[in-house]
Structures are given as C-alpha cells and as structure tokens.
Computed example of a mutant assay.
Amino acid sequence: MVVKYVTVERHVPDALKRPAPPAWSKPGGPLTTNDFVERGDVNEAGLKVCSAQIRKLGEWDKQ
C-alpha cells in the first residue's frame, strides 16, 4: 500500500488584503459643519470596507 501526503496551503485572497481607506484629517481640524459630515462619511466608509473584508474572510475560510 502506497500512501501519498499532499500539503495544501491556504492563503488569504488578495482582495481581502486591501487596506481600509485612510483616516480623515485636515490641518487645524474640522472647522465647519461640513467638515464633520465629510469626516463621518470617510470613517463610515472605512468601517464598511473593514466589515466587508472580515465577512468575506469568514466566508472564504468556511470553504
């Protein structure tokens, strides 16, 4: 009887390794109400990217 061992390496897909959008910054900090809205939109987008990456990583790992 011949036994053959095969090593299977799993890697995280490149699409899940992308960094999240950069944090919002403005010299002198937020000055107007619109600055707070813009900062919130950027931070929300970053959270959505991170959440999607984590969710997809979990789906990929179940395969």
Rank of each mutant, 00 (worst) to 15 (best):
M1R: 03
V2D: 06
V2R: 01
V3T: 07
K4Y: 02
K4M: 10
Y5R: 11
Y5I: 08
V6A: 06
V6R: 05
T7H: 14
V8S: 04
R10Y: 08
R10A: 06
H11P: 03
H11I: 02
H11C: 11
H11G: 05
P13H: 02
D14M: 10
D14N: 14
D14H: 10
A15V: 02
A15D: 08
L16D: 13
K17L: 14
R18Y: 15
R18S: 14
P19S: 08
P19D: 08
P19N: 09
A20Q: 05
P22V: 08
P22E: 07
A23G: 14
W24C: 00
W24P: 00
W24I: 03
S25C: 11
K26Y: 14
K26G: 13
P27Q: 03
P27N: 02
P27K: 01
G28N: 04
G28C: 15
G29T: 12
P30Q: 11
P30E: 06
P30C: 15
L31K: 13
L31I: 13
T33E: 06
T33Q: 08
T33I: 03
T33S: 07
T33K: 04
N34G: 03
D35R: 09
F36I: 02
F36H: 13
V37S: 03
V37A: 00
E38D: 06
E38N: 01
R39F: 04
R39K: 15
R39S: 10
D41C: 03
V42G: 00
N43A: 08
N43R: 00
E44P: 00
E44K: 04
A45P: 01
G46K: 03
G46E: 05
L47W: 09
V49E: 05
C50K: 08
S51R: 11
S51D: 12
S51V: 05
A52R: 12
Q53P: 03
Q53R: 13
I54L: 14
I54Y: 13
K56R: 14
L57M: 07
L57D: 01
L57Y: 11
L57E: 01
G58K: 02
G58R: 01
G58C: 08
E59V: 15
E59P: 06
E59D: 10
D61N: 10
K62W: 07
K62F: 10
K62E: 06
Q63A: 09
Q63G: 06
